[in-house]
Write a protein that binds this DNA or RNA. Structure first.
Lengths: 199, 199, 199, 199
DNA sequence: AATGAATGAGAGTTCATTCAT
DNA sequence: CATGAATGAACTCTCATTCAT
């Protein structure tokens, strides 16, 4: 037997996987019924409807990344190291929760109204967190790169993962995280040459 | 009066905008009928169905970026400059065709069968083009960063644009392109120091 | 070049074939356009619409069988021979105009209103003709078999042809006609008593 | 209240009547919804779609005639009597299930794919049954009438019924069956006279 | 706590037909 | 004469959701 919470968890996890695989709109409640083994009507005991399902997945996932990110950088004071940890955590979490994170990245606009706002508030908080980490890490305030551009470039690098990355492929999650961090911080061509050119 | 081709163009452009705004699956043929001023049945004179609409948008757009990118780097031989031009072109095209490119980025999996394959072939060709540009631009073959990781990190940075960037905002497209290029090539922290440390 | 009449004939013949192959309701005007080589709108110059097409096919065909049947029995006075000739003519005509006759037999109820009535008047006339032929051919007025039953049994035998008969098969049309005539007139088992008499 | 099975039965029976009255293609799911009192969507709980509706009607009906025919001739060994019983059963069943049998006879080609094949397999079995009955009943192997011609002539006589026969009319079903049997077996003119004429 | 049965609202698509040219 | 282009009406089918039990 399972408890109420376990069943809800099961429903959410299954839904995340199927939303990730087929997209939110293309997934039918019947698909979920089939995949969970619950009856169609039975799911409505746990969840208000399809929208709430998506909402719960996104809210929980966002809350978790947010909390995790805060914890990951909490102890560190060195600006560059804080940034590196933020990146490692995000990529690590993403690769460990591919389905949920794909749903987060891809179905950002599938919600609306109050639910959308709640999720967006979380998102903004998370963006702000990166912005603050970035602010200390960047060389000078008068950098040639806008703060928001830098932040969203980084998010783009990381969130695009769901599009091509395979956990089981030749690049393990850890290395992926390191490479993305290095790429973002030092660039593809980190060499002495460009640095000299700039001097 | 408009010619047949003009009307088809009008239909495709309108559809791209609405797909971009509401998503492919949430857009109904009736929405498109309203937005184009054509009758519901009338659209089927130009297009086989909703799927072909999406396909045509994606195919044309991909063909155009691909051709444009090739032209953009054709005359240049310097590896780093070729890379910079590729990036500038992609970002420039993206910001100039936001709706279509959002549809390209976001609805990659909304097609299926033969149509999906055709679009995917184009996509692979485009990825290969970047891969080859990247290959010459990277310092050494034994770089610490995998080729595919670098390529998709770059695509992520650039394609994520549709998520947050506003053409009318404080950062004009040109500057965005420059910043993304600089970011990808030199990193956030164009390290004189780390460069020295690395030597 | 073709004359107006030739084009109409071509349209009717093609339509008959396609109606026979796919059924009246399942055939679209576009199917006919494709099959005739005429444009969709062009067909409406020759015919008022899909219904009139069916009507013309049925009316012409019925008129022709009716006229043919009258001619076939005209010269003959022997009751049994008249019946035999009626049957032979019907079967001969049917096998020679399979498509049209299938349309006649199968799409009897696809017409309505005035057109249906016109065709039905012809049909009734044709039935009456058989009834009169039958009346003289049957042994006595107090036969054990009702006139209408006999007539429609015969029509059933003959019209069912479109369901199973293949002109190119092992039984040529002539033999089919003879066998159906014999079957209807003498039965499958040319009765033991008469059989003895035959010996 | 009705059980699930009763409702399905009700749906099938109603559908058979309406298909018989207006034809399969001309009948809309809304027509059936109206006639059954079920909601449009509700019918899809019982049946996969319009095609399956037709299929179920045909399959059940064919299975029933087939079983019935086998039972009808089982106990009898006399060849002629077996044939007479087959005919009586077929006509009896037909007149008792006019709607279904009309659908069977008239909509033979409205199905396709696997469903068509299933129904056709039943049909072939039924034809084979008659063929075997006929084989023993015919006077000699070298009869002047081909086996298939005889079989389909008989089916034609019997199946054409839906075209003209009225259960409430002057000829009751029993008499119709007897007359058709007599007609097929002894012919319209079974008398000594024609036999004599032939000699 | 769970579900079989039902449904309103709407989706994509088709079709016979029209009409300006 | 002929047709490219257009359309209203209707069709089958799907889906999220409900509710009596």
């Amino acid at each position: 037997m399972m408890t109420y919470d376990e069943r809800l968890e099961h429903l959410l996890a299954t839904a995340a996987n199927i939303f990730a695989a087929h997209g939110f709109h293309s997934t039918t409640m019947r698909d979920l019924s089939r995949a969970t083994g619950m009856s169609l009507a039975g799911m409505y005991y746990y969840v208000e409807g399809k929208d709430e399902l998506l909402f719960l997945i996104q809210e929980r996932c966002f809350t978790e990344v947010l909390t995790g990110a805060r914890a990951a950088i909490a102890a560190e004071t060195d600006p560059l190291e804080r940034l590196r940890r933020f990146i490692r955590h995000h990529v690590g979490f993403f690769t460990a929760h591919m389905a949920e994170m794909k749903v987060l990245s891809h179905e950002a606009e599938s919600l609306s109204g109050e639910r959308w706002e709640t999720v967006n508030r979380l998102k903004r908080t998370y963006v702000d967190l990166l912005l603050s980490v970035l602010d200390s890490a960047r060389p000078e305030a008068d950098s040639s790169i806008d703060a928001r551009v830098a932040a969203f470039a980084l998010f783009g690098m990381m969130n695009w993962i769901y599009t091509w990355y395979d956990t089981e492929g030749p690049v393990p999650p850890d290395r992926l995280a390191d490479q993305l961090a290095e790429l973002f911080m030092l660039g593809l061509v980190p060499s002495t040459v460009p640095a000299a050119q700039q001097g």
